[in-house]
Write a protein that binds this DNA or RNA. Structure first.
Length: 212
DNA sequence: AAGGGGATTGCCT
DNA sequence: GGCAATCCCCTTA
């Protein structure tokens, strides 16, 4: 899969809507990066919604800080932060500017530039592990704090429809790795996909409304 | 001014 | 399955 296979970036307006709807809608879309001239990309198979106005687990819940500034910015832009001092995590900012809300991209099914991903992740990395987890995804695609605040409309980082219009089933569950609002079913993923970051945790269920 | 804790990962047992 | 790594941010004193 090369640049010629990439469809144009989705319009930034598409991210302005309710975060939970955007989080579900993003499943099955392609995330592309062309960082350091290297093209990489994959199908989004796992997301989580964070809405600071009501969500104690969200960054920005206690107001804007230097780290969370992008989360308060306009929709369709990247919010990248450093986790545990060493891993990067990529969010898509949602809702109108001023509302701190975003969708965390947790896993991709790698489709383009797998050799590049392996250069970054390790030569012995199995396909399945290249983008399985928010930190791994960023490492595989070369995403760092440099991309924080960047619009997801290219040319370095963008989200587009997948070239084959495959319909993916979507399931929901509790979010991973948080200690507040732990019961909220705000995680969306492709059930059965080997590229999802973990097996189905407690509380997981098929999401009927998203299965076509 | 100091300390606790994290939207994680990889390696160890 | 458990735990260390690692650093900065935010909370509390």
């Amino acid at each position: 899969m090369t640049l010629a296979d990439a469809l144009p970036a989705l319009p930034l307006d598409a991210y302005r809507g309710p975060t939970l709807e955007v989080a579900r809608w993003l499943i099955g879309k392609m995330l592309w990066s062309r960082i350091d001239g290297e093209l990489t990309g994959g199908i989004i198979v796992e997301t989580e919604a964070y809405v600071a106005s009501v969500d104690p687990a969200a960054h920005g819940y206690r107001g804007e800080t230097p780290r969370t500034r992008s989360m308060f910015g306009p929709p369709g832009h990247a919010y990248v932060y450093v986790s545990y001092g060493l891993h990067h995590c990529l969010n898509v900012v949602t809702e109108p500017a001023g509302e701190a809300a975003a969708v965390l991209l947790r896993a991709l099914e790698p489709r383009a530039g797998l050799d590049i991903m392996r250069n970054r992740r390790g030569e012995h990395c199995h396909d399945r592990d290249l983008c399985r987890g928010p930190g791994r995804l960023c490492q595989a695609l070369g995403i760092t704090l440099r991309e924080d605040g960047a619009p997801l409309s290219g040319p370095d980082l963008w989200i587009a429809e997948a070239s084959q219009g495959h319909q993916w089933a979507v399931a929901t569950s509790r979010r991973i790795g948080i200690s507040r609002a732990v019961e909220w079913p705000w995680r969306f993923f492709v059930p059965g996909s080997q590229f999802v970051s973990r097996g189905m945790p407690r509380g997981a269920r098929p999401d009927e409304s998203a299965v076509q």
